[in-house]
Design a protein around this nucleic acid. Structure first.
Length: 287
DNA sequence: CCTATAGCCTGACGGC
DNA sequence: TGCCGTCAGGCTATAG
């Protein structure tokens, strides 16, 4: 499930619920979802601290910790350890399934609770991750993390402009859909939003990226921003995307469904092991 | 360097 | 009802 719009919703949710509360305890229900940090170290680092600020980059949700209590024996000398960049950051990635869940009663814990924080107000925050393809990390430097992962700029970053976008796609030879989903070029687009962007831009998913006309490249840029913004706005809150415009492909993700725009038949196809949908009439094959 | 393909995981669903 | 294959809103390691 979690693509850019979903992770944006998780950020809103976390901001509205779990910030600024002291973490009393940490439960790692399944250590498989941890990467680069042990359960005991994660607990040691989190305990007594609070979540202070979150932000999203592509499909990652970062959460900076703050020190509610100073470490023992580190009280006197102020060597700059209080600066933002010295505080560790939690990095959530949800994989194909998952979400965050904030609740009071443990009986309301999600079924696939993999990591749970207990706050001093009696509430809990759980990392819900059925298929365990998601990962939680503890990182020192988010900028470095993004650089190390070679992640491209966030697809909705305000300072990402069309020129930069196009320059990042330049020189690629792959098919349109797999290029859009390559997080190293632009971060945040997944299977659903890739299909939607291509549908709205009226581009065939298997168009070689290097064959796009100037006009098509403009449409691609425009619809990438439009579609992602629209998904974020309409999905905000519930994560129910049924309120998307009628002209959106999301309502017709089924072989043989009628195209929301031309009433032709929607077709199912497979690229890179992922199944997708498109309208052969609205999105004619290249050549 | 690049692109395309298995494999990782669990669970829901449809066909037999 | 039960079993089994398929498939799922992602990514990585590996092959070509």
């Amino acid at each position: 499930m979690p693509e850019l719009p979903d992770v944006e919703r998780f950020k809103t949710y976390l901001d509205a619920t779990a910030l600024h509360q002291r973490i009393d305890d940490v439960h790692v229900e399944n250590a498989r979802i941890l990467d680069g940090v042990s359960a005991s170290r994660l607990r040691d680092v989190l305990k007594g601290h609070s979540l202070e600020k979150s932000w999203r980059h592509g499909k990652y949700l970062f959460v900076r910790l703050d020190g509610v209590e100073k470490d023992e024996g580190n009280t006197g000398s102020d060597t700059g350890s209080n600066k933002d960049h010295d505080r560790p950051v939690l990095a959530f990635h949800f994989g194909m399934t998952g979400s965050l869940s904030y609740f009071k009663d443990l009986s309301d814990a999600p079924e696939h609770d993999r990591l749970r924080l207990d706050f001093d107000n009696g509430y809990h925050l759980s990392f819900d991750n059925q298929r365990m393809l998601g990962r939680v990390r503890l990182i020192a430097d988010p900028e470095k993390f993004i650089a190390d992962q070679k992640l491209g700029p966030d697809a909705l970053a305000p300072d990402l402009d069309r020129k930069t976008f196009e320059s990042r796609l330049a020189g690629r030879r792959g098919r349109l859909k797999s290029v859009l989903m390559n997080q190293k070029l632009v971060s945040g687009i997944g299977n659903i939003t890739a299909d939607e962007i291509l549908f709205q831009a009226r581009l065939h998913p298997e168009t070689p990226i290097d064959s796009l006309s100037e006009e098509s490249r403009k449409a691609l840029w425009r619809e990438m921003r439009n579609v992602l913004k629209t998904y974020v706005e309409r999905g905000a809150g519930s994560g129910d995307y049924s309120d998307l415009p009628r002209s959106y492909l999301l309502h017709a993700r089924e072989e043989g469904a009628s195209c929301p725009r031309c009433n032709g038949k929607i077709r199912k196809f497979t690229t890179a092991g992922r199944s997708g949908y498109f309208c052969p009439a609205c999105q004619p094959a290249p050549e």
